[in-house]
C-alpha cells in the first residue's frame, strides 16, 4: 500500500483529519505522513487496522525557531527597460517538537510507514497524544521522548523520566540545552 493510499484511507475514516505528505529529499526516499495531533490516536487505530502491527521506532526531533532566507528574482520595468531585481525575503519558521513513528507490518512483511506529529510550540503547548494504547512498544520510547525532549504524551500509562533522574528539570536532547557546570551536576545528583 502506498503512502497516498494510506493517506486517503485515513482521511476517509476520520472526518476532519488533516494528513500531509512530507517529502524526503535523501536517496532513501522514505516519505512520511504528518498527522494533526487532535486525531493522532484515532489515526493510529486506523493504521493498526491496516495490519501495521509493529511499531518499531519512536523518537522525537527538536526544531527550534529559525529564519529562512529566500532570494526571489522578480522582473520589473524601469523606464521602458526590463530589469531583473533580486530580493531577499526572510521568513520566520516557528519552532516545534516532532515525534516520528516507524511502523512496519509483521503480518505482511512491509514497511516502513513513517508517521509524524508536531506540537504547537516548544514551550507551553507540548502535548501530543500517546500511541502506547495502540502499540505497547511505544511505552519506553515515549517516556524517553518525554525525558529528553519534554514532550508530554497524553494518555501514556506511566509517564516518568526514564534515563535522567527524578528531580532533573531540563531536557538534554534539545538543541538549545546548556549543560550545567560539572560541580552543579554533582549537587543535583545528591538532592
Amino acid at each position: 500500500m502506498t503512502l497516498n493510499e494510506i493517506r486517503a484511507r485515513l482521511q476517509a475514516a476520520i472526518p476532519g483529519c488533516q494528513v500531509d505528505l512530507v517529502v524526503n529529499g535523501s536517496p532513501s526516499a522514505h516519505n512520511s505522513l504528518l498527522i494533526d495531533r487532535q486525531h493522532g490516536l484515532e489515526a493510529a487505530r486506523v493504521l493498526r487496522g491496516l495490519e501495521l502491527d509493529y511499531c518499531s521506532n519512536v523518537t522525537a526531533v527538536d526544531w527550534p525557531e529559525r529564519v529562512q532566507t529566500d532570494k526571489i528574482k522578480t522582473k520589473q520595468v524601469f523606464d521602458g527597460v526590463e530589469k531583473e531585481i533580486e530580493q531577499t525575503v526572510k521568513t520566520t519558521i516557528p519552532g516545534c517538537l516532532e515525534v516520528v513513528y516507524h511502523l512496519f507490518s509483521m503480518a505482511k512483511k512491509e514497511g516502513p510507514v513513517v508517521v509524524r506529529m508536531r506540537t504547537g510550540n516548544r514551550t507551553d503547548d507540548v502535548t501530543l497524544p500517546s500511541l502506547t494504547p495502540v502499540w505497547r512498544s511505544a511505552e519506553f520510547q515515549e517516556r524517553e521522548a518525554f525525558d529528553l525532549y519534554g514532550i508530554v504524551f497524553d494518555g501514556h500509562p506511566d509517564l516518568r523520566r526514564i534515563l535522567m533522574w527524578e528531580g532533573f528539570t531540563d531536557y538534554p536532547m534539545r538543541k538549545d540545552y546548556v549543560p550545567p557546570p560539572d560541580d552543579d551536576l554533582e549537587i543535583l545528583g545528591e538532592r
Binding site: G25, S26, P27, S28, S56, N57, P112, V114
Partner: peptide, 16 residues
C-alpha cells in the same frame, strides 16, 4: 549528505 532522512535496520544478535 543531502537534506533528508533515512532509517536503516539490521538483525543484530539481540533483535532489530
Amino acid at each position: 549528505p543531502k537534506v533528508g532522512e533515512a532509517y536503516g535496520r539490521i538483525e543484530s544478535p539481540k533483535g532489530e
